[in-house]
Nucleic acid binder design. Structure first.
Lengths: 166, 166
DNA sequence: CGATTTACTTCGCCTATTGAAGTACCTTTG
DNA sequence: CAAAGGTACTTCAATAGGCGAAGTAAATCG
């Protein structure tokens, strides 16, 4: 009944969540005939105010390189789910906007994906919902607190062969 | 706060968790000169009793196909981090075991969640830990009840340990 | 204006992933 | 026991994701 037990219990639950979500996301994306990355990009764009962002912003939000975003946009643009538009204020920038078709995909698919969770969540008691939100936000804060500074995660001598990549 | 707001809030928190974990896992794997998938496979093997399991079991646990596992094992075996051994009881089976080097890697690279999360979690009050565990387990149950497909939404009492995954 | 920085794209290369086909091995059944 | 069928894994070919480095165009600095 020690503290480590509790830590383990929470870690196990977290891993279950991560795994279930990952597999779920894969199935969902497939049901939209998209890959998981493509769907994520679509969701990111649709989730920004005005549904318009730049590749750089997307890459930071998704945690991948710009080059990767370019490739993803290429594929989505070919299917007319997003569109490129040169910015008027800064012509180096490309604004990526979601199309009507893209929005349709985002609106329909996530619903199907998260339905199980959403329904289950809605069925909970008020206090339980509140508690879950509080807990999840707490965990999220613990996990991504340090992440703002994305580079040197490997600090001290924990790691034997600390090969600095890059 | 309306019900939909709460659902959204919980989903947003969930996504923050997923994203933070994913990005962190990538960095960690890179520090070991592994890819995220390779590291995960290593962790899966090292986490099984006897540190020995089969490709099929791994593929189910990781949620990817057998073919993928074969490719991953090939790469890890080439670096002598895992080893293949034909099973004696059923010679169709291949037992995958972790080597000393593989174990060293796993030991030195903290689990994606560990380093960031564990310390913060340990620092919490007792009641908070308990609440977080309860909430995470609830969420995990809601998410990975995929096999219990037909069952209606979990009723409020029976949150004890639910199904082993596939 | 030239030099530097910023925003993207292009390129070459590698890894992940899959479905389908192939191989070796168990198990069933007539 | 031998054919038939199923299981466990590998191989193959093809597509996607992802990265760093180099390239281009545009803004900004001095």
């Amino acid at each position: 009944m020690s503290i480590p037990d509790r830590t383990d219990a929470s870690l196990i639950a977290l891993r279950r969540i991560l795994r279930a979500t990952e597999i779920y996301a894969r199935d969902l994306a497939q049901s939209a005939e998209l890959t998981p990355s493509q769907l994520r990009l679509l969701q990111v764009v649709s989730g920004t105010p005005g549904c318009s962002t730049t590749p750089t912003a997307i890459s930071m939000q998704m945690g991948v390189s710009q080059a990767t975003i370019t490739a993803l946009i290429d594929k989505l643009a070919k299917r007319d789910l997003v569109r490129r538009q040169q910015s008027q204020t800064d012509r180096r920038q490309t604004n990526v906007t979601i199309t009507a078709e893209g929005n349709a995909v985002v609106d329909n698919i996530p619903d199907a994906l998260q339905q199980r969770y959403v329904n289950a969540f809605k069925a909970l008691e008020d206090w339980e919902q509140a508690q879950i939100i509080a807990s999840l936000e707490r965990v999220a804060a613990m996990l991504d607190a340090q992440e703002i500074d994305a580079s040197p995660i490997l600090t001290a001598g924990d790691i034997s062969h600390s090969a600095k990549v890059r």
